[in-house]
């Protein structure tokens, strides 16, 4: 389904490098424990620059989601309708992604989801699908 590749920056390079091993990697503040996203040089909670990396289990909930019925870029026309969602990961961060489903009508906020990796060129793209415990 992917048309566009990730666009790693100086701040997100570690994140996209980790996805090559199918790992969802975040920075965790060593001072206060806050797991942050977007990636940043310092903790927005306590301003500590000291951090370690943590690997997310890739399990979370749908915080919110929308269903695109039109393509705002030609490249997405063949994907319609598709679901864009904010995923609340167990470790804390909210990340933007897609929920892969044949039935968008079944989705609801707070629904449990887990990660699936879609491979595209040299990248693995983190996406999510519903799952019941």
């Amino acid at each position: 389904m992917n048309t566009f590749l990730p666009t790693p920056t100086a701040d997100t390079k570690f994140f996209w490098e980790a996805t090559q091993n199918k790992e969802l990697k975040f920075q965790k503040c060593r001072n206060c424990g806050h797991v942050r996203w977007p990636a940043s040089i310092a903790c927005p909670e306590c301003h500590s620059f000291d951090f370690e990396y943590v690997i997310s289990k890739g399990i979370g909930k749908i915080y919110s989601f929308v269903v695109y019925n039109v393509a705002f870029h030609e490249a997405f026309k063949q994907n319609l309708p598709y679901v864009v969602a904010i995923i609340e990961l167990e470790e804390g961060p909210h990340i933007l992604s897609n929920v892969i489903t044949n039935n968008p009508a079944e989705l609801r906020c707070e629904m449990p989801v887990k990660i699936i990796w879609e491979s595209y060129e040299n990248y693995n793209i983190p996406k999510f699908k519903p799952f019941e415990n």
Binding site: P6, T7, F72, N98
Partner: peptide
């Protein structure tokens, strides 16, 4: 990276707020 997921700005973003 938002575009990678097909998220194209204001309508989708406000719709995420409205859905929640």
């Amino acid at each position: 990276d938002n575009y990678m997921y097909g998220e194209f700005g204001f309508v989708g973003d406000y719709a995420l707020a409205a859905r929640r």
